[in-house]
């Protein structure tokens, strides 16, 4: 009886944490605290681990996402990046050059158009990875950005 009660409670918590994205505003800083802490180790980038921590899977196909970033950034403190993925409900940006992997997560609202630009910092040359969730599947695009002056106090 005790065990049954316990299991029931667990199912309830699970249901509560599985509220689908897009229905309401979500601050991933509060809902997915650990994903921001996934580190890029030397010889072991944290990008795949961060993707798994955020989306719950690391099954990612190439394609459907467009990632625009410069080939060479003279100033690593200001690197313009554009992510575009038609029909995406979620977009996320990662890299392997800074201490942690995750840069930003976007929940695309009902009338939002997943064509977002931002400016990021890279400590050194690295690979920038954009991931989009489209109809429950993950797609990615990557780009190497060569940094001549680092931008993260490094």
């Amino acid at each position: 009886m005790e065990r049954r009660k316990f299991l029931g409670l667990g199912a309830g918590i699970l249901a509560a944490t599985m509220i689908p994205a897009g229905l309401s505003a979500q601050n991933y800083r509060e809902t997915k605290v650990d994903v921001w802490k996934v580190k890029n180790e030397k010889d072991k980038p944290g990008v795949d681990a961060a993707i798994k921590a955020l989306f719950g899977t690391d099954k990612v196909e190439d394609g459907k996402v467009k990632l625009k970033a410069p080939d060479i950034a003279e100033n690593g403190a200001v690197i313009p990046v554009t992510l575009k993925a038609e029909g995406a409900s979620r977009l996320a940006l990662f890299q392997d050059a800074n201490p942690e992997s995750l840069v930003a997560v976007f929940d695309v609202p009902k009338n939002g158009i997943p064509d977002y630009s931002l400016r990021i910092k890279l400590q050194k040359t690295g690979t920038v990875v954009a991931v989009a969730e489209i109809d429950g599947k993950l797609y990615k695009a990557s780009k190497v950005v060569k940094v001549t002056i680092g931008g993260c106090g490094g």
Binding site: Q26, W36, I79, E100, V103, V108, R119, K121
Partner: peptide, 15 residues
């Protein structure tokens, strides 16, 4: 809606 990190540039620009 964007959840962001320390790796956005100073005076962040968003489009």
């Amino acid at each position: 809606e964007a959840s962001t990190s320390q790796f956005l540039s100073k005076n962040p620009y968003l489009k």
